[in-house]
């Protein structure tokens, strides 16, 4: 894990909190620990299972690089989703936005502008879709579920229209090279580095800035936030912009990964991102969000997929396992929530 762990280290606790704050800091840290540790425990168990069932393939460096690379695309989307869910919203359109961004950024016309043109287009389309979502939800008073469902349908339709169902091959060397082993930094693929940077920035924004505070406040009690003087609507607009931005970045990563743009990209990403955020500990009702948990959730899901694939188990079994994990995680969290 490259992002800071959320519970403070013991030394830090003593240094920054005054004497009478220790007890409560400890309980807070303990509670965060239980959640984070249980997720880490699940991940460790999965690695053990993978190591036992396929010792040679699973623990191979290349395989681990592959797992992390696969986690990167959905991971970036999940960071944005975590913000939206923390604010009490939902974004069902993330997969469709990834698809639309990836095909718009890989048309022949866009590719004429080179590396920067593709990157810029991917991000801009993502932000543009997020802007539409945000305006409809914040100022059009539409329910997030409906507004983003409409975006899901429209963006996918537009993506199909642009590609006519064909795969758009990327011909720009600079982009293709980023997916090759030569570009790895100390053995880490560039995609994973982007994911790490997005994660760290996301963690800092959520936990250390006024933007993060407002997000939590709006999700925890929108009426109280409004009466406390927070511009709830503007905050909601920004949150869907942020989610769109993450989708644009993810689309670019996907272009690097696959060397192409396809209208079927990002299929069901919305469900994977929501599931990862929820098993990570973000409350679906809003008011509490954890980037650390979301990232662990993504890693758990990606690892499961990888282990199943290595063991030649079909995707139907994977789906069943994922469903079971979501239910188990939520039940465990409800237990810990009620005891604290």
């Amino acid at each position: 894990m490259t992002q800071p762990a959320s519970p403070p280290r013991p030394g830090e606790t003593l240094k920054t909190s005054p004497p009478d704050g220790i007890a409560s800091w400890r309980t807070l840290a303990a509670r965060a620990d239980v959640r984070t540790l249980s997720l880490l425990g699940v991940l460790a168990a999965l690695i053990v299972i993978g190591g036992i069932t396929k010792p040679d393939e699973f623990l191979d460096t290349r395989n681990l690089q592959l797992v992390l690379t696969q986690a990167s695309v959905i991971g970036v989307v999940t960071v944005g989703m975590t913000f939206v869910i923390t604010s009490g919203g939902i974004d069902l359109s993330v997969g469709a936005i990834v698809a639309l961004s990836s095909v718009w950024a890989t048309t022949v016309a866009t590719q004429e502008y080179g590396f920067a043109g593709v990157l810029f287009t991917a991000v801009l389309v993502g932000v543009g879709c997020g802007l539409v979502n945000g305006l409809l939800i914040a100022y059009g008073a539409m329910v997030p579920f409906i507004a983003t469902l409409a975006m899901l349908a429209s963006a996918r339709g537009l993506a199909l229209q642009i590609t006519d169902g064909k795969t758009q091959i990327v011909t720009i060397d600079g982009i293709l090279k980023l997916g090759e082993r030569d570009s790895y930094v100390l053995g880490i693929p560039p995609l994973v580095l982007v994911f790490a940077v997005v994660t760290v920035i996301g963690w800092l924004i959520l936990n250390r800035t006024t933007f993060g505070r407002r997000t939590v406040a709006v999700g925890g009690n929108a009426e109280a936030a409004r009466l406390a003087g927070i511009d709830v609507r503007r905050q909601r607009l920004y949150l869907y912009l942020l989610s769109g931005l993450c989708c644009g970045i993810a689309a670019f990563l996907l272009i690097i990964l696959s060397g192409s743009g396809q209208n079927t990209n990002g299929n069901l990403y919305e469900l994977d991102a929501i599931a990862a955020a929820i098993i990570g500990g973000t409350l679906l009702s809003g008011g509490r969000g954890t980037i650390t948990g979301s990232v662990l959730g993504v890693l758990i899901f990606t690892t499961i997929t990888n282990i199943f694939a290595l063991n030649n188990l079909q995707s139907d079994v994977q789906q069943i396992a994922k469903g079971a994990i979501i239910v188990a995680a939520v039940l465990v969290q409800r237990r810990t929530a009620s005891t604290t």
Partner: peptide, 17 residues
Amino acid sequence: AQALLMLESVTRNVSVS
């Protein structure tokens, strides 16, 4: 319902405005 962020600490409830 209208003033407090019940999941948050006193500090954050006080500083929110």
